[in-house]
Design a protein around this nucleic acid. Sequence first.
DNA 1: ACGCATTTGTTCGTATGTATT
DNA 2: TAATACATACGAACAAATGCG
Lengths: 256, 256
Amino acid sequence: MAAPAATAVAALPGTPAFSPLYQQIKALLLQSLQAGEWLPGQAIPSEVELAARFRVSQGTVRKAIDEMATDNVLVRRQGKGTFVATHAERATQFRFLRLLPDDGSAPQLQRRLLECRRMRAPAEVARLLALGAGEPAVQVRRLLLAVQGTELRPVVLDDIWLPGTPFKGLTAERLQAWRGPMYRLFEAEFNVHMIRAEEKLRAVAAGAADAAQLAVAEGAPLLSVERLAYTYGDRPVELRRGLYHTEAHHYRNELS
Amino acid sequence: MAAPAATAVAALPGTPAFSPLYQQIKALLLQSLQAGEWLPGQAIPSEVELAARFRVSQGTVRKAIDEMATDNVLVRRQGKGTFVATHAERATQFRFLRLLPDDGSAPQLQRRLLECRRMRAPAEVARLLALGAGEPAVQVRRLLLAVQGTELRPVVLDDIWLPGTPFKGLTAERLQAWRGPMYRLFEAEFNVHMIRAEEKLRAVAAGAADAAQLAVAEGAPLLSVERLAYTYGDRPVELRRGLYHTEAHHYRNELS
DNA sequence: ACGCATTTGTTCGTATGTATT
DNA sequence: TAATACATACGAACAAATGCG
């Protein structure tokens, strides 16, 4: 962990490997995060400390951290320090949960675990998760139910695939016992932190089995959301296909 | 337009109106943009010029511009200057057009104008566009067709509502004649620049009329995209409801 | 309750590098 | 080549928020 080359080196401009100092610092910080030197929720060293470690000015460290903060990898808190982002905070949850009630109320969802089993990854799953042929994977299926007064109405049917190796030890009991966001469990128990995801949305007709789970008619229109989530270094670590019942809910998106 | 108070004033800390200098500069720049002092595609004054005008350091101007650049309101080009963002650039178009072919090819869409008429805004439209009762509005309906080899397949049915006053002079002929993105027409001809939008997505069943336009069966699942687009100062200036046929296309979204 | 140390936030100034014309 | 504009980097000072003694 004691990096032999803690000093960042600015290559001569014009050489192919050239990149600004603050970008090199950013890369080094990301490496430390990936290596688990600082865990989600913990504070990283102060700007002056990092400046001393890397032998650069405080302003240079600042610019590196600034970018990582806008990337939602770090969170700055004036007077306290800079912290590794975590999925425990409310703000972070809503970045990945885009389904909202039409009436504008706060989403209130209950989980119901349907399945959690370990198996060899199917070809398509292996391809998207960049796994070798026959490598293990974990499949999780669950239902999310909206709480409306005393009633519970199913709104999301999730089919989730995770690489087996980093998620060794993930069981139905573990999932069942967990209170809080699933992504928070992943980072707390398996040191896998989701920072980015790509989604493909489609309208599809409900199949018989899915319709039964979601309590809708067969052939009813459902919103299909296929997600590929990435951790540090753009490594894909989750494949998720969700079916959303959008009668009293909608998927909210901000274009900017 | 000759601002009487070109000098930014830092209120005493603790007073309610206090905000950092660079935020004040940002607000002043946004006012100038809103007033049309610099038009989309044009260069704004250089950082040193702006620093002199506002009596602040170059670094402070720089920070204001930095934020506006990440907001996609301005575009920096090293060696050339800083420019007002425009919808003419390819990159900007894809920020607002999220429908992509499943096969990964570049989207190639043809427009077919169905309707363009001026009328009093219906109550719901008026509410969302913050119009007074009975104020004029323009309704545009159009079809987008995917070009697949020699075939044309309808994929999007758009129903667009615009406030009548800023869009005085918008006619079917004007729309028909325009080559390029509609948002580019809006900023070039009507000085209305879209910078942000909120969308609500749902899966719905195709009605008889919509199904006919999109060449799908009645009841087929369609992706409904309801968009409210904003210009400078968070003023809503477009309401759009699109129906997407997502059999060979999908809506792409990036979570970060 | 007060003050002090720590940490990030803001602002200034200066110098040099890189891209464009 | 020279001038201009943005990009990077350093240093310094003070403000604001936090936590601790």
